[in-house]
Design a protein around this nucleic acid. Structure first.
Lengths: 192, 192
DNA sequence: AACAAATATGCAACTAATTGCATAAAAGTC
DNA sequence: GACTTTTATGCAATTAGTTGCATATTTGTT
């Protein structure tokens, strides 16, 4: 399972509680490997049982106690072993495209709305990525190796968002050129 | 569950056996919503129980018998209802990027190899998409609505692949500029 | 004083997806 | 004749992920 490795990756150079891990996921690694807090807590239990992370109970004044996790040597070892294995491309699964295959039976307005919603999401995400880049990755050649890796992930995100936005724009043009006809009818069989 | 809707989408204008569905997924809808044959067979059972698809046993000479599935009116209805609901963006999960976060503790050659492998995959995929486009989607404005939708999905694929390839190129340049140093050392804590 | 939000962790039930088999018949190949 | 590939369908077990809920404290807001 790769979530465990994502968690361990977040613990490489800092100890974190489950709560903090979840928060960090939301603003960094989670862009590339998302996880909910439930998943994280469950995985932390498994990792602890396997001895790949260690726990320390920390009493806090003013806040509930927390359990802070740190990477053990076993964990670091496991992380390296995992990184050396060839990773495979994740199968794509995006239901927007499944819906597009249904365009013949849908009102185009419906898809237009969906694409516009996506467009907004991707604009916001791109802006966020660019903000992060400007703040901490302006001169990639001068970064540490670790941060070079993080920069490359960020750059991939930027390219993806830009490509998607370019597509949204073109998709909207084509979808709008259909528009207006209100009652969609069944088309004859076709193949890709 | 969206797999059921992907299957129903494949059955909109043709009846298919589980086997044929699986094959078709590999060359069309599966680019955007992938599924293994086990998943498809399981889902077909569920869909049949729900009355959304119907089955006909077909005896064949020269080949094993097969069970051909068709969309029922209930199924068509369910498909439309589903399409009208807002779809959400799938959470990203790509372990290549998790590995990049580990760059500080890995030999750069390792990631270089991975990125090169990806690059090849994406080149092949892009070539396939472009072949499909040239063969059947040369003049998008003149297509039926149904095929316009399929074209837009294909176009999204093309844009994604191009963006990824652009990234691979740039990533390799940066990774190669690190190269050579053989024993990676631990870097001080950083944040995104 | 009441209420919402942030901090902090977790269970239970369920759905979805993967992995590893197993079977069986026909067609093609060496 | 033995072997592989293609066609065709499925089970069982496991792992991964989602959804909905439950709990408890503190801090800030109205």
């Amino acid at each position: 399972m790769a979530l465990s490795h994502a968690i361990m990756t977040s613990l490489i150079d800092q100890d974190l509680s489950g709560y903090d891990l979840a928060k960090q996921f939301d603003v960094s690694l989670g862009f590339f490997w998302s996880a909910s807090h439930q998943q994280i807590y469950q995985q932390l239990k498994t990792l602890t049982a396997a001895g790949e992370v260690s726990v320390t109970e920390v009493s806090q004044s003013g806040k509930p106690d927390k359990r802070v996790y740190g990477l053990t040597d076993v964990g670091r070892e496991a992380l390296l072993t995992w990184a050396e294995k060839e990773s495979r491309r994740k199968p794509a699964r995006d239901d927007l495209f499944v819906k597009l295959y249904n365009l013949g039976n849908l009102k185009p307005e419906l898809l237009i709305g969906e694409v516009e919603a996506r467009q907004l999401q991707h604009q916001q995400r791109l802006a966020l990525y660019q903000r992060i880049r400007d703040r901490g990755y302006a001169k990639p050649e001068h970064l540490s190796d670790r941060r070079k890796g993080m920069y490359l992930a960020l750059l991939a995100g930027i390219y993806q968002e830009q490509a998607t936005l370019q597509w949204c724009k073109e998709a909207l043009t084509l979808l709008q050129s259909i528009g207006s006809t209100d009652a969609p009818i069944k088309a004859p069989p076709t193949e890709l």
